[in-house]
Design a binder for these strands. Sequence first.
DNA 1: ACACCCTTAGCCTTGCTATC
DNA 2: GATAGCAAGGCTAAGGGTGT
Length: 719
Amino acid sequence: MYRPATKMPEAMPTRTEGQNTETIGSRLKRLRLERGFSQRDLSSPGVSYAYISRIEAGARTPSVKALRMLAAKLGVSVEYLETGRDIRDTDARELELADAELELRLNDDTAGAERRLLAVLEDARRAGDNLAAGRASIGLGFAAARNGNHLDAVERLEAALAEYPLRPHLRPDVFATLGQSYAALGAPDRAVRVFEECLAAATENASEDIAVQVRFAALLSYALSDAGDYDRATEVVRDALARAQSDADPHNRIRLYWSIARASGMEGRSAEALHYIRKAISLLEATDDTTQLARGYLLSAGIEAREGRADKTREQLELAERLLTHHPEARDVGMLRIGQSRLAALEGDPGNAVERAREALDILGDFHGGEQGAAVWALARGFALQGDEAGARDAYRRAVASRSGPRPEGRRRSSPEGLTIERVVRPAGPYSLALCVRHATDATRHVRDGMLTTTVRTADRVELASAHQLVDGRVTLRAASEEGLERLRFVLAVDDDHTEFLRRFARDPMIGEVTRRFRGLRVLRLSSVAHALVRAFCGQLVDTRRARELEYRIVRGTCERVEGTTFNAPPTTQTFAALAPSRLRALGLHARRAAALVRICRSLELERLHDLPTDAVAARLERERGVGPWTVGVVCMQGLGRPERGIVGDLSLVKLMSDLHGRWVEGHETAELLEPYGEWGGLASVYLGLAYHGGLIPLPGPSRANKPPAFFRTAPATP
DNA sequence: ACACCCTTAGCCTTGCTATC
DNA sequence: GATAGCAAGGCTAAGGGTGT
């Protein structure tokens, strides 16, 4: 982004004065106390608290290993702990250099930049940082050329090139300036020689980088003109441009730079690879910035149109259109067309308004709910202007119906085909999809990039649905039908506010901390009760991983595949009722459990349990042999979405209670643990398990729990 | 009184360097 | 290349200070 020259920022401060007097020891102590750690807290195998004490006292200089461990625990960089600065000297020089180079390019007065470049040059020479010294010398050469001091420029650049040789295609600006200074000094022949060599070198060493070849060809052409050789000047440019057909498109160039970078990297030319990868990234960022700018103009055009200012609207739309020329996203083009439709309406051109709105609808396709509304509205306005009310109504209906029409080109979040209904909902109370979908993947659903894709069972069919959470907390739901959408809402538990639970147990000694850290956690439901029951039966195995494998095998082996996907349909009561227990045994389920599962499914339509109060559900299920309170708990939580039924006998709870009591407790005893949580027993079971495994429950003795999982250690504490 | 924290002393190990 | 000497890293144990 360019800034006006008069508003250039002050030189960037790269060194913090005053902290240089702080020793490693005092810095360590300061950081430790700031974080409320004792030396013991900070110690770890290999870095004892005694050692930390000596480091703080200045009696020992910490080893690299110690620095790494301490820095990690303190959440600072090793660099900062060691030096008090966040970047290395070389990086600091690079930052200073880059800043000075920008100042040189964008400011009229180069004196400040020159002073800084001289300082960097001196510093880099002292530190033996040849790379930075070379860059600083070159910068000084540029400054001289900018000031018309070409003799100085030539001397500096020639000296810099002699000391730090550069390849023309990697720093074309250096050779360009040198040649131009030659020409300015009245030596176009020397300029011609430089540019000829550069062009030859670039053609040989960067045969794919057409842009750099064209650049040298243009420079050579100017120099040849200066030297009076007009024929060759024309020929050189024509020759170069013939190769540069598709090079104007920034995306082509990004791809080109990327491929050159990869090729260079594979051939071991890392510096060159880095050069091209940086070019690709900066071009990509510039293109992204352009897109954002275009969106800004689109927004502004919308506001101007609403205010009825046609001129302003046109101006903003034209700016946006100019910026959206390369691979624009469908959504942006759609918005542009909507804006154009509104402009046409403002200017009294209903035909154009209708036409543009139709284009917008076509482009927006299925997945841009909000924008589609605007497009339909624009279309209706167009028809209204034409005075064709019936046509407007009809077109409106057709517009809605035609949303399954041809799909637009362009990038967008990948989404399963056929999910034609999209709704954005705000969950009731704190909700984190990322937390809820941990371990959610099974034979009927998966999680990719934070998006849950799941099969859902409606009354008469199985359909696919998906959900992802937006940054503002809302959740985008997609399904093939309204009923599917409703099922998805149930599966996600988005409407089941658990604020009351969080509020009531915020100060609970066991789960208080975990409710504060993981406020958004709810329990995801399975899309059929039968699936929950089979999960519960499989889960009676102690080894969770094997339990999930078994469940996966059973669902895979008994439920039909959903067409066009890798998912299986969720099992139903009939799935298992129609099965011989031996089939389930063959899939790996224990004989007694297989028999119980089939028997239950033959005697009871599991989905009907939704209609019964939780106690009645428990009473009904517990009548069956092989079903205990744990199984009931799992079915209630995951099958029926009842947060009140605790998962009595859960292994985590047994371990937790055993640790608390100092003896191994029996499963049924964990009911006592859940008792204080009353009607939130089910949710409490989950939070208790999480708190226990995360080491968030104060225990009298050493915990039996495993070390906390990674997500636990890194999760930010939410207020 | 007790728990916790920090510091210190003493000892062993490791890695580097000078010397043979 | 082997060996000795030295400095520093890292451990345990013990002692003193401080807050509850």
